[in-house]
Simulated scan of single mutants.
Amino acid sequence: MDPDQDYSFEAELWRSGAANASWYFLTVPVEISQQIRFMASKTKGFGSIRVRSAIGDSRWNTSLFPDKASGCYFLPVKAEVRKAVAISVGDRVSVELRIG
């Protein structure tokens, strides 16, 4: 993958999993997911891609996870970030990703 590829998009926060083990995600739009997949020469594990993410002033390192059904990547959003930017399920947010 080429160094430092940047992407920006808006997405709605959603929750997956049982109530006692919930995960919160943003779905990377299909067009951006396709670009990322095309540019990714090697991925680890089951296709995850390391990224630096930002919502507002909150920044964190994580991985994008591929979803075969939708063809998109999912971006996990940890509790610390959700609290810092005051977002909850259903909120639409602006996201920045840096890959590389």
Rank of each mutant, 00 (worst) to 15 (best):
G17H: 12
A18D: 12
A19K: 15
A19Q: 14
N20R: 14
N20K: 12
N20E: 12
N20T: 10
N20V: 05
S22H: 11
S22D: 07
S22F: 10
Y24N: 00
Y24H: 04
L26H: 07
T27P: 09
T27R: 15
T27C: 12
T27Q: 11
P29K: 09
E31R: 12
Q34F: 08
Q34D: 14
Q35A: 07
I36V: 04
I36R: 03
R37M: 08
M39W: 11
A40Q: 03
A40T: 04
S41Q: 15
K44A: 03
K44S: 15
G45H: 04
G45K: 13
G45V: 00
G45M: 06
F46V: 02
F46T: 06
S48P: 01
S48N: 12
S48M: 08
I49D: 07
I49Q: 10
R50A: 14
R50P: 07
R50I: 06
V51P: 14
V51Q: 05
R52N: 05
R52I: 02
S53Q: 00
A54H: 09
A54W: 13
I55F: 11
G56Y: 14
G56L: 11
D57Y: 05
S58Q: 09
S58I: 03
S58K: 08
R59Y: 11
W60R: 00
N61F: 15
T62L: 07
S63P: 10
S63T: 04
L64H: 02
F65H: 14
F65S: 12
P66S: 01
P66C: 06
D67E: 12
K68M: 07
K68L: 06
K68F: 11
A69W: 11
A69C: 13
A69N: 15
S70R: 10
G71F: 09
G71L: 09
G71S: 13
G71Y: 14
G71K: 13
G71I: 11
C72T: 14
Y73N: 02
Y73H: 09
F74K: 11
L75V: 01
L75M: 06
L75F: 11
L75E: 01
L75G: 06
P76C: 04
P76R: 01
P76V: 01
V77D: 03
V77R: 07
A79F: 08
E80S: 12
E80A: 10
V81G: 03
R82W: 02
A84C: 03
A84E: 15
V85Y: 01
V85N: 04
V85Q: 01
S88H: 13
S88W: 05
V89Y: 02
G90I: 02
D91I: 01
V93Y: 05
V93W: 04
S94L: 14
E96V: 10
E96P: 14
E96I: 12
L97E: 01
R98D: 08
R98K: 13
I99S: 01
I99Y: 11
G100L: 04
G100W: 10
G100R: 05
G100H: 03
